[in-house]
Simulated assay, not measured.
Amino acid sequence: MAQETEKFDTAMATWQEWQEAPWGRLRYTLAEANLMRHLDEGTGGGPLRILDLAGGDGGDAMRLAVRGHHVTVVDLAPAMLAAAEARAAERGLSERVTCVRADVRTLPADIATGGFDVVLCHNLLQYVDDVPGTLATALAPLAEGGLFSVMAINRHSAPLNVAVRSLDPAAALAALDSDRLRNEMFDSELTLHTAEEIIPLLGDLGCRDVRHYGIRSFCDYLTDDARKYDPAYYADLERLELATTARAPYMHTARLFQLMARKGTAS
Rank of each mutant, 00 (worst) to 15 (best):
E95A: 14
A89S: 13
G44P: 09
M80I: 01
A195G: 14
T10F: 07
G115N: 11
T29V: 14
E20F: 05
G115L: 05
N154K: 03
L64A: 04
M260Y: 09
L124V: 14
L35W: 07
M36A: 12
G42H: 12
N123M: 09
A163L: 10
A226Q: 07
P108V: 06
S267V: 13
L147H: 04
R67M: 15
F186E: 08
L192R: 04
S178T: 13
E197T: 11
D75E: 08
L167H: 12
Q126D: 06
S94A: 15
Y127L: 00
A136V: 02
E4Q: 11
L167K: 08
D177A: 12
Y229W: 14
P108R: 03
D209P: 05
D110N: 03
H70K: 08
T43K: 09
A13H: 05
S94C: 03
D187V: 01
T98L: 09
D236R: 15
A138H: 00
D225S: 13
A254V: 12
L64K: 02
S217V: 10
V119P: 07
G146E: 01
A84Y: 01
R25P: 08
D129F: 02
G55A: 04
T223V: 10
R49N: 10
M80C: 06
L39V: 13
A232T: 11
V100Y: 06
L256C: 11
P141K: 02
G203P: 08
L167R: 11
F116K: 09
D52C: 05
L240P: 13
I198S: 07
A163K: 01
L259A: 10
W15Y: 15
R239G: 15
L142E: 01
V100L: 06
G55Q: 03
T106A: 14
E32S: 12
C207E: 07
L205M: 11
G145H: 01
R165C: 14
Q126K: 00
P22Q: 11
A112L: 06
G146K: 02
L242A: 12
S157I: 08
